Simulated scan of single mutants.
Amino acid sequence: MRTLLKVTCQVEASNKAVADGTLPKLMKSTAEKLNPEASYFFASDGCRSAMFIFDLKDPSDIPGIAEPFFMSLNAKVEFSPVMNAEDLQKGLANGGTLK
């Protein structure tokens, strides 16, 4: 399922992670693990943040994705199912009802 992962890092923990090299390593390993179709890095509410759009193959993968962010960056982690324009068109073509 196409999924949006949003990570919002706690400032003090992410400052330390930048200084000791943990942050770039964690972002790189996450990108390698998820093979996202897109990834973005930005400031949100004054915090370092990242978004990855990727295919979540199984919900049991969530802890393995989230725990490094919780443990290393004291981060808030959110997973949301998302659609691209093609998915939306397909859903609306069905009259917005389940098959």
Rank of each mutant, 00 (worst) to 15 (best):
M1S: 13
T3M: 04
L4R: 01
K6L: 11
T8D: 12
Q10M: 12
V11Q: 06
N15I: 06
N15G: 09
N15F: 09
N15R: 13
A17E: 05
A17P: 10
V18Y: 00
V18C: 00
V18N: 00
D20I: 12
T22K: 02
L23P: 03
P24D: 01
K25S: 03
S29I: 01
T30D: 05
T30S: 07
A31D: 03
A31L: 05
L34T: 15
E37S: 14
E37C: 08
A38C: 10
A38S: 14
F41N: 14
A43W: 04
A43R: 13
S44R: 08
D45S: 13
A50R: 01
I53P: 00
K57Y: 06
P59C: 06
S60P: 14
D61P: 03
D61V: 03
D61Y: 11
P63W: 02
P63K: 04
G64R: 13
A66H: 10
F70I: 08
S72I: 00
L73Y: 10
A75R: 05
K76W: 07
V77F: 09
F79V: 14
S80M: 11
E86L: 13
Q89C: 11
K90C: 05
G91H: 13
A93W: 03
A93L: 14
G95C: 01
G95R: 01
L98Y: 07
